[in-house]
Amino acid sequence: MTDADPPTDMVLETTPIDADEQTEEIDPLPLTRVESIGTDIEDNVARVIVGHESVIEHVITALLGRGHVLLDDVPGVGKTMLARSIATSVDCTFRRIQFTPDLLPTDVTGVNVFNQQTREFEFQPGPIFGNIVLGDEINRAPPKTQSALLEAMEEQQVTADGETRSLPSPFTVIATQNAIEPNRTYDLPFAELDRFMKKLHLGYPDPKDEAELLGRTVGTHPIEELESVTDRETLVRARETVSRIEVAAPVRAYVTRLAGYTRENAHIGASPRGTIALLRAAQARAVINGRDYVTPDDVQAEAAVVLSHRVKTNNRTRDGKAIVADALEQVPVDG
């Protein structure tokens, strides 16, 4: 069943899409502002999550790069905590969906309910209508339910009873999935996997970090005291800044070569969606590093987490990660 917050403070617009509505001009933030926002969120999250700096950075670049994140790990390493602290850091609507085997698609997207008073059907928006949506243990739901996410994640809209409704902006899904108990989970469809910009692994903390973690959480959990450092509108404008970052032809060519390598050396290589995602992530990383252009280093920093889960091999000993690592090593940076 849905474990989401009650939709009482529903301020989100859930009306069907009007064609003209989409062309609003967003004013981009200055580069340095975005850079500091990134740093702020990072610092903020680091108050809750001990260690895992690179994962935090990856989640932030995904947030700025308009991507969704899949956290894949054993339970209890802080996946949900990470997602929550990210969401809390940004002052915007946060929704959480706990995926279970009996979850229905409408439980995610929302449903038309007959209002006795107005004697009309009213759309009751599902938990998907949020700025940051945490899909917990996403692989516990059957494919049918998971597919409800497909449209939302790619098109940023949901269709219920034939009516298409736009999702709020920004819209980011941070999903977690359980790597254990494979017989009680459903593998994510490849198409859905492809819609996640990044698939991240947290892993166990360092012994030092873990000790620190234990010290912090003895009293109240720090997440309870976490405050937001930025708001929804700023995030939207920061995203606009990121999307305008220049990607020079050599970098585009390099990304293409990387994808080409995975396609040649794996059963299924990185899709064009994958290369787009890679570029967006690289753009975000460039901004985080205070640059207004993307370098191959940005691409290299993002390639492993962006491309690995999109590459499928028939070879059990060499997974997508290995292929991408090979690609990074062998594909020449300069044509």
Binding site: D297, Q300, P332, V333
Partner: peptide
């Protein structure tokens, strides 16, 4: 420089 290395790396 190895082919896979960017200038900075």
């Amino acid at each position: 420089r190895r082919p896979g290395e960017s200038a900075r790396s």
